[in-house]
Amino acid sequence: MNIYLRLVYRNIRANLDRASLFFELIFPLFFIFVQGFGLNGIVPPFDVGNGRVISYSLFLAAGAVTLTVINGGTNAGTQLWFDRKNGMFEQLLMGPFTRAQYILSIIFATLIIGVAGSLLVFGFAFPVLGASFAPTWEGALLIAGALFLGTMFFGAFAIALSVVLKSSETFQIVSTFAFFIFLFTSSVFFPASAAPSAIQAASLANPLTYTTDIFRAGLFNAVTPTVSLELGVLAIEAVAMFVIAVFAFRRIRV
């Protein structure tokens, strides 16, 4: 079996428990069905681009699917933390692998969890919402690109954070706080263009804004010229964060 497959399988089996994965799926569904239905009656439908008008519950549902990207990212940091705490980090580095293979295996495991989680939430929520789609190849590629790059960014971010922070408890608190900032300065809950100027400015640097916008554009066939620009920015942010994570990872003292 390929070395990456072995390591990815091991990361998922050893470091991720079913209970936390279950709640990571429940979390976006809670937004979709409670907040979405709750606000649907008072928020009028609006245009997400290209003349596509959708209800607020569908708007939020698409945003909530990308929440699983953040959850996947947190998992990357958690995997590294568990390995360091339990002595498996050094044990694996003394095995027949390179450091690069180890860190990439965490990113790959994160991608699998992030993308699979998104698809599960999507598959569960959208039929209930009664949405109908006319899928296109362009839309499918945009969705895949958004989920891939978003998970890569947040996975790398969590890895960098877990290297810098000295305890797993601090990591949990800081990562939760950081992810709330990402969440509320993005376009997950509301269109960033309708937000106050400070939040609008913050949303321009926020990779979750781009992940969500690109995902919605692909899903609702609402592709505008700005989507390719957003995809470019997200790719640059994801690669930059991955490089930072690799440098941070190399600083871990053994």
């Binding site: 002595g87 050094e90 003394m94």
Partner: peptide, 15 residues
């Protein structure tokens, strides 16, 4: 080609 038993504990906690 080597094996290592470290001084510190090393285990997978979820298994």
């Amino acid at each position: 080609q080597i094996g290592v038993v470290q001084q510190q504990d090393s285990f997978d906690q979820g298994l």
